[in-house]
Amino acid sequence: MTVPFSRWMRASDSPEQPGAVRPQALDAGGFSGASGVALTTVDRAVGWARANSIWPMLFGLACCAIEMMAMSAAKHDVSRFGAEVFRSSPRQSDLMIVAGRLSKKMAPVLRRLYDQMPEPKWVLSMGACASCSGVYNNYALVQGVDRIVPVDVYVPGCPPRPEAVIDGLIKLQAKIEYDKQFGKQFERAPVTVKA
């Protein structure tokens, strides 16, 4: 895991503030440092771990799924961000990437799979179709997956470039990391990646 430990810090924990933990003290490699002590909350430590080990579920529906595969294959290689373990079983995954258009026939299946995922779970809506049915505003499609499942990150594009999806993933990681990990979670305001 190559995430620098300085990411543990909130913006308010800047080293200039008296009493704040200095990032140098939290050098990678663990809890060595000058004092030999790292201070953080369990919440943050769990958040850091969760954010950097996302297991997405392979939920390819249509064209966007091809770009999702491109994201995980050579060149774009999503494993750089710790999210390459694509699982086909909902029970082993915590992120559902809805890649593609969702038809009314598929909608109950999607909900069922979402319900089978263990908490905590997140949903990334990939592409115009998943977010709002895109160019197909008609009888056959669900006009946005947010009518079926709560969405955390919207990635626009038809199809979004793999880079855009990775950007969405990083935004989601930030969101996971700074969320409350125990008890009631913060209200999840969805994030939209700027095209």
């Binding site: 026939k105 008609n138 009888y139 056959a140 006009q143």
Partner: peptide, 22 residues
Amino acid sequence: LTPNDWEGHPLRKDFPLGEEPV
């Protein structure tokens, strides 16, 4: 193609497109 409990035949001309206002 449509679910088993679907009503109507989508490609008939009297079947509405079902557009939702944006």
